[in-house]
Every structure is written in structure tokens, then in C-alpha cells.
Design a protein around this nucleic acid. Structure first.
Lengths: 208, 208
DNA sequence: GTCTGATTTAAACAGTCGTTTGAATTGCGT
DNA sequence: ACGCAATTCAAACGACTGTTTAAATCAGAC
């Protein structure tokens, strides 16, 4: 029925079910059913339910932060002390989330809802991933923003970047439920969102 | 054990359990246990589990938006067409969320985590409440901001206000988990957060 | 073809879930 | 003090939960 491996089908089904019905209604029986496999296959491949959820988060987050990191590296051009253009830095942080959302084939759109829910649930696995793998990258972005906005105190940078991440997470998790009137194709709407978000972040970082 | 009514104890326990362990682990058995009452009391007082959750959200959200609305009305002084100070408008929207958080007695602190989770779960009850009761108030705030920021297009106002709500929701749901270094009393930290959030929102609305 | 390890499967395990039932208990107006 | 309604309670319902077991099936190496 599908060219994907059982493991991949399980990961995809889990992602789908979390995005559609949330963590509260997630059961490994529904997962195995949607993945066209057996109950025990989940425990065989992932150990238990929690480790499966962890891997769902890890798979896409690793990809997202890898892209962010490489885009930032490209801006830095080897010299992390050279100030970059603020808009480009924000683009490197915000746009990859859009790309994920817009890539129907990879199912990234669904994942951003999963991510928003995992954030809200304050998932322990997500917290660990954040601490060990992603916080360093976020710090790099904060440093770059600091160089691009020399007039803002370091502490202010951190606060506002934190708020920007909040706005991004919230927005990405609520695509399709925004109250902003929308009479355009979905793809166009995604790009509009990111453009507005970048303008918003730029403005928020341009005043003392 | 307590001077509160059974109904109130159930509401409070539900709020606590959602905030602590999320919707996924929420069961009416744990609720009734923590509320020192019987299983069936929940169905007796609230019909079923979902209606109980709905009332948990409604109780505090009504209160929150009532305060926001009355603070905005006070600023308008009867004339909704007179431009107000932007900072005061933002304060009227953001600060009540802080007051709730900081009011230990009312348990509002816990509720903001519940709210963040309900947002992420895209709760149907919350969506209905939003549409019918709260969106009009949010629109009033957007109008007031529009008058205070005549140089910004109407559409831009809506986008940025939406992002600000995202930053607020995200931040309120993650108190205690922020990466910003914090070596101050909790109450002071709350006020600091709101001050930074207002400054952030002001900056975001001050550039075209 | 045969052996071997990886994978899939059905079945059962012990719990927990939300909800319902009907009896026991309480509080209150009279 | 009685009676009625509101409330609380223990018990049971059937359905669903995550996990484990051991047998069945598969694939690839020799």
C-alpha cells in the first residue's frame, strides 16, 4: 500500500493523529491502525509510546534547526563577529518554519501543530532536546541579532527574541484558524504570514 | 477540609491537574480524588468531562476579558473615537493577564498554563467562546490601537496585534521555563515580564 | 534448500477510562 | 419533626489503555 517502511508509516501516522486530535486522544491502537500495521510493531520499533512521540518531535526539529543553522552560517560567511543584516537573520530563523509548513509531501505543515502542542504540554523530551541541541543555535541567533542591533541592550535582545519565538510558535500552530480575513490561496497566505512576521520582528527589534 | 463548595473544588482541581500534567493525563478519577469528592459528583455537577473542562476555561476567561474591557472603556472615557495612548492600551490588554497570574489565591497563575494548552489543543469550546464573546473585545482593542497608530495600515495592525497575542500566550504559558536568566523574586519577575512585553509590543507597533 | 536473525502477528495481561445506576445522606422550607 | 429536593456515595458497566508474550512469517546469507 505504500513504499514507506513500517517505521516511517508509524511516525507519519503519529504526527497526523496528534495534529488532528491532540495528545489527549492519541492511542497506539489508532496509530497502528492508521499505519496499517500491528499493535506490537510500535513497541518493537520504538520501545514504548513516549519514545515514539519523542522521535516524532526529534525527526522534524533536527531538520528545522539544521536548516536554520546552515542559513545563519551562510550569512556569517565564516566571521561570526561581522554584523549581518537584521532582516536576513530573522529570515533565516523564521522562513525555514514556513518551508516546513508548506512542504505537503514532508507533512511539515502538520508537524508545526504537533510542535505547538508539545510546547504547550511542556514535553520533557522537547525540553531536553531544547537544552542540549537547540538552545546553542538559538543563542547564536541572539548573538547575531545583538551585532545587528548594537543600540539595544543584550538583555532586551533576549527578551524580544523570546517574544518573537512565541509569536512564531503561536502563529504556526494556528494556521487555518486565524481571524485575519483571508481570501487568497493557501501558499500565498503562508508567504504573507512570514513576510508580516519578519516585518513585525524587525520593528520590534528596531526601537529601544 | 475547605470552605469551598464541591463545584468550586472540582473546578480548581481540574485547573491544577491540567496545568501540572496536561490534558493527556487528565482523568475524572484524579480530579475527584484531589477535590475530595466522589466520581459521580463530577457528572452530577457538570454533566460530563468535556463540559467540566469548558467551564474551567469559561470561568477565568470571562473574568480576564471583563477586566480588559473595563480597563479599555476607562481609557476611552466614553468617546471611542478619541485616540488614546498606545502604551495604556497595551497595558489594558497585557497587564490583566499578569494580575491573574500573580493572584495565587485565585489560582490564575495556573490557569494561564491551562489556557496555553487549550489554545494549542484548539479546543472547540474555546473556539466558540472566542468567536462569540471575546473577538468583539479584541476588535475593540485593535480599533483603539489603530487610532493610536494612524501611520500603520489597518491590515498591519491586525497582523501585529495577532503576533502580540501569540507572544503573550506563549510567554504566560511558559513562566518558570524561560531561558532568560532570572535571579529575582517571582513577583518582580512577573512585573518585569509584562513591562518587557509592553515595550516589545510598543516597538512592534511603532514602525511601518 | 536451510539456517538465522529481523520483522510481523494474534492473543492475552492488568489497569484505567468516562459514564450510569440506585441507594444513602444531607440540608432546608414548612 | 416531617418531607422533599439536592447532593453524595459505593458499585458496577463496557470500552479502551499501554505493554508483553510467544508463535508465525519474512528476508537474506551461505
Amino acid at each position: 500500500m505504500s513504499t514507506l517502511s513500517t517505521k516511517e508509516r508509524i511516525l507519519n501516522s503519529t504526527e497526523n493523529l496528534i495534529a488532528e486530535h491532540g495528545f489527549a486522544e492519541l492511542s497506539i491502537r489508532k496509530i497502528s491502525q492508521q499505519a496499517h500495521t500491528n499493535l506490537a510493531a510500535i513497541n518493537y520499533h520504538f520501545g514504548n509510546k513516549q519514545q515514539l512521540i519523542d522521535q516524532v518531535l526529534e525527526r522534524r526539529l533536527n531538520n528545522l534547526f539544521d536548516i536554520r543553522k546552515s542559513m545563519l552560517d551562510e550569512l556569517n560567511q565564516g566571521d561570526v563577529n561581522k554584523p549581518c543584516n537584521l532582516e536576513q537573520i530573522l529570515h533565516a530563523f523564521i522562513a525555514p518554519a514556513l518551508f516546513m509548513i508548506n512542504d505537503e509531501h514532508q507533512g511539515g505543515r502538520i508537524f508545526m501543530q504537533v510542535l505547538a502542542r508539545a510546547y504547550a504540554e511542556q514535553s520533557e523530551a522537547l525540553h531536553d532536546l531544547m537544552k542540549d541541541r537547540y538552545t546553542p543555535i538559538i543563542k547564536e541567533f541572539a548573538e547575531a541579532i545583538g551585532l545587528a542591533c548594537p543600540e539595544l541592550p543584550r538583555e532586551t535582545i533576549f527578551w524580544r527574541f523570546h517574544f518573537i519565538i512565541g509569536a512564531l510558535t503561536y502563529t504556526m500552530g494556528h494556521f487555518g484558524a486565524t481571524s485575519v480575513a483571508r481570501q487568497m490561496p493557501e501558499e500565498e497566505y503562508f508567504e504573507k504570514s512570514v513576510a508580516e512576521l519578519i516585518e513585525f520582528a524587525k520593528a520590534a527589534l528596531s526601537n529601544a
